[in-house]
Amino acid sequence: MGRLIGILLVIWLVIGAFAAFQRGYFDDTDTNCSEVSDIALNIVAGPLNYTGVNPKVTCTDIDAPEPSS
C-alpha cells in the first residue's frame, strides 16, 4: 500500500512540474520570491492545474536591517 502511495505521489508531482513548465515558469532566469513560490505551488497542486486552479503567491520583500558602521 505504501509503495502505491509513493508512486501516485511521484506521478502527481511530475504532472505538476509539467504544468509549471507549460506555463513558462522555468523559462525566466531572473527569479524572485513570488516566482519561486508560484513554481513550487504549481508543482504541489499537480493535476489540479488542469481543472482551472491557478495558484499564485504574493510576497512582500522585507527590508533587511542595514549593518552598523
Rank of each mutant, 00 (worst) to 15 (best):
G6T: 07
D63H: 13
L9K: 10
D30I: 04
N32F: 05
N32L: 09
I7E: 13
L48N: 00
T51N: 05
A40K: 11
Q22L: 09
G52T: 05
P55E: 00
P47F: 06
L13R: 09
Y50L: 07
I7A: 12
T58F: 07
A17R: 10
I15W: 06
L9D: 08
V57G: 06
A19C: 08
L9Y: 07
L13G: 04
D38C: 01
P55R: 10
L41P: 09
V10H: 01
A19Y: 03
F26T: 09
P47G: 13
E66D: 08
W12Q: 10
Q22N: 14
T60F: 05
F21T: 13
V53K: 07
G16V: 04
C33W: 12
V44H: 04
T51I: 14
N54C: 10
Y50T: 03
F26R: 09
F21L: 15
T51L: 15
D28C: 03
P55D: 02
T60V: 03
D27Y: 05
N32T: 11
A40F: 05
P65Y: 03
P47I: 12
D38H: 00
L48G: 01
G16P: 05
S37Y: 10
A45D: 15
C33Y: 08
A40W: 11
T60W: 02
I62D: 06
G16N: 10
D27W: 03
V14H: 01
F21C: 10
E35H: 13
G16W: 02
I11Q: 02
A17W: 05
V10L: 13
T31E: 00
G46H: 00
T29K: 13
I11M: 05
T58G: 10
I39M: 14
P65D: 08
D28T: 09
V10N: 04
V36E: 05
D38E: 05
N42R: 02
D38R: 07
S37M: 14
Y25Q: 08
D38N: 00
T29E: 14
Y50F: 15
L8P: 03
I62C: 01
P47M: 12
S34M: 00
A64C: 07
I62H: 01
C59W: 07
C33K: 07
T29F: 08
T60H: 08
